[in-house]
Computed example of a mutant assay.
Amino acid sequence: MGTGTADQADTPEWVGLPGGLLSMRRLLLVGWTLSLTAATAVAAGMLAGTAWAALGAFWLGVLAWGWVLLGRNWRSWRYAERADDLLISRGVLWREQTVVPYGRMQLVEVTSGPLERRFGLASVQLHTAAAATDARIPGLVPAEAERLRDRLTALGEARSAGL
């Protein structure tokens, strides 16, 4: 009697993060590693001789490694809105999936620091009665963050009204 509709309804529709978060994090990585490269090369060159200035290249290796890791981490973040809860999945080596029931949400806030605003990003912070289930979705476009906040708030009020 299975028509396959129940299987489709059980499968969440995952939404990934926009590319602005990855761009912001990579720009920070480049800024810090190039600064450390220059500082290490100058300090080693002045203290131990010009040949030792090549130690600054270590930070270029960190840059290449960090570039790849940031991309993998960014791709691992996703969220899905289901009928009764919100799923948030993240992590590359240690995968973590958080389930936040709408009826348990006490506060949903949208935050955006100076750097996030510069890149046109915002984060959604979810607070529940149990601190262990608080969750955060970083790097959203502000319009999506506000839409998600409004939807989660409405669903939270509807689910908690019966308690």
Rank of each mutant, 00 (worst) to 15 (best):
R95H: 10
S160R: 15
G66E: 03
V68E: 09
R159Q: 09
L115Y: 04
D84C: 05
L63M: 11
T153V: 11
L69V: 15
L121M: 10
W67Q: 11
W52F: 14
R118E: 08
P114E: 00
V42Q: 06
T50N: 13
D134V: 03
R136A: 14
T5Q: 15
A51G: 11
T153I: 06
G61V: 11
L121E: 11
T11I: 08
T37I: 12
A145W: 05
S35L: 14
T11Q: 15
G162F: 14
G20C: 08
A41Y: 00
L28D: 13
Q8L: 13
I137M: 12
L152C: 06
L86R: 07
Q8F: 14
A130C: 07
P114A: 12
R72C: 08
G120F: 07
G71P: 00
S160F: 14
T133F: 09
E157A: 14
A132K: 12
S123L: 05
R72I: 04
A54T: 06
D134Q: 09
W52I: 11
L152D: 01
R26E: 08
T153H: 11
Y102P: 03
W94I: 10
V62N: 02
E116H: 12
I88H: 13
A39P: 03
G56S: 01
R151M: 14
L163E: 05
T11V: 10
W74V: 02
D85P: 05
A131M: 07
A122N: 04
A131Q: 13
T128D: 06
A51P: 04
P114Q: 12
A132Q: 12
G162T: 15
A83L: 08
E157W: 09
A6N: 07
A145Y: 00
L29I: 10
L152P: 02
L69G: 05
G156T: 04
L86C: 07
A122H: 00
G20S: 01
A9K: 08
A80W: 01
T98A: 09
V42T: 09
G162C: 13
A64W: 03
E116L: 13
D85W: 05
T98I: 09
M46A: 13
S23K: 15
P101H: 05
E146W: 09
A6M: 14
S112T: 00
S112D: 02
L34G: 01
G91Q: 03
A51V: 13
E116T: 05
L47R: 10
T153R: 14
T11R: 15
E116P: 06
L152Y: 13
R136N: 12
T133A: 14
E96R: 15
Q97A: 05
A135M: 05
S35F: 15
A122P: 04
T111Q: 12
D7R: 15
S76I: 03
L17E: 01
W77F: 07
A161S: 15
S89D: 14
W52K: 10
A154C: 01
W74D: 05
M105P: 02
F119D: 01
E157M: 08
G49V: 03
R149A: 06
T3V: 07
P101E: 00
A83V: 10
D84H: 14
W32Y: 10
G61N: 08
E81P: 06
G19E: 09
F58D: 02
A54I: 08
T37V: 09
S35W: 11
